[in-house]
């Protein structure tokens, strides 16, 4: 593949060293002054490095459809799907917004509930021990598998989808926040006690700052599953949003539309994930 070879070309001058060592990984101070790769080449390498996965996906998809001579009813090619989206971008944007709104609402509810329960378990040893059983249970049970049941119990509406998303987000947030609250720097707890800090001060000035990065990491873990769970719930229950549109398109054999929904939801998921991981990086720079 050409992108990889060009990426290697920019790396090559640093890798080879004229020493007798059989391994080329040992850094020595004796290397001759190496030529700096030009800025343009460096930038090209970065761009290639960032874009080859996407290009690979598109080329593989295109080749699969074209070389397999698949009819559009089975699998449309990338250009077909993109023109379908370009044909009616407004409705896709609206559906994506609906899904995103449900996901963010559920995420906030779930994160608040999870953080609250983690706080309770920080203050009470008994609560911590009692919660640990159901917490373990929830850790190995994927909530989305029981979304039909939740739909039956809470009704076929948007509130249920928010509840499902909240449940998905709730458990990782609780587990990560509880471990973050407990993971204060060594000795800091003793110092606070010696200096006569009250329990509440210890919580807000010591435990919370150390838990915050963990909480964001847990959001990064749950955001993708939350999007997937919300889509799945819309798909199972048929209310509104991308998941609903997908099942309708699928069941009426409008394959291009179904694939377009898939592509839009993947883009939405990647965007939300990037936002949360960006926040994560900011928080870990600030608090760690």
């Amino acid at each position: 593949m050409t992108p990889s070879t060009s990426a290697r070309a920019t790396v090559a001058p640093t890798a080879r060293l004229p020493t007798a060592e059989p391994s080329d990984e040992v850094p020595t101070g004796l290397a001759p002054p190496r030529r700096r790769p030009s800025v343009a080449l460096f930038l090209l390498g970065r761009v290639v490095n960032a874009l080859w996965p996407l290009a690979l996906i598109l080329v593989a998809w295109w080749a699969w459809v074209r070389l397999g001579h698949l009819p559009p009813a089975v699998a449309p090619d990338p250009s077909g799907v993109l023109t379908f989206i370009a044909h009616d971008p407004g409705s896709f944007a609206l559906d994506a917004l609906r899904t995103a709104g449900v996901v963010l609402g559920g995420l906030v509810v779930g994160a608040v509930a999870g953080a609250l329960l983690a706080t309770v378990s920080w203050f009470s040893r008994l609560a911590r021990a009692v919660i640990s059983g159901p917490a373990l249970l929830s850790q190995c049970l994927p909530v989305a598998t029981i979304s039909p049941v939740l739909a039956k119990v809470f009704g076929y509406n948007t509130t249920t989808i928010v509840i499902i998303t909240a449940l998905i987000a709730f458990f990782p947030v609780m587990v990560f926040t509880a471990s973050g609250l407990a993971r204060t720097p060594a000795g800091a707890d003793d110092l606070f006690v010696v200096l006569g800090a009250r329990r509440l001060d210890r919580f807000f000035r010591l435990a919370v700052p150390s838990a915050l990065p963990r909480l964001l990491v847990s959001l990064r873990v749950s955001i993708v599953v939350a999007v997937a769970g919300a889509m799945l719930a819309q798909w199972v229950m048929g209310t509104s949003g991308l998941g609903y549109r997908l099942i309708i398109a699928q069941s009426s054999f409008r394959t291009s539309e179904a694939w377009a929904c898939s592509v839009v939801s993947i883009v939405l998921s990647v965007i939300l994930y990037s936002i949360v991981s960006g926040l994560c990086r900011l928080a870990s720079e600030r608090f760690e």
């Binding site: 790396v11 998941g243 898939s262 990647v270 994930y273």
Partner: peptide, 30 residues
């Protein structure tokens, strides 16, 4: 083994993991 592929493969993996379950349904059914 091929470190220059690493960041690209990581990115592919992240995209793969971000695919909502039902979104991959049409592809798997095909």
């Amino acid at each position: 083994l091929l470190p220059f592929l690493r960041s690209g493969l990581d990115q592919l993996g992240t995209i793969e993991s971000a695919i909502p379950f039902v979104a991959i349904a049409p592809i798997l059914l095909a």
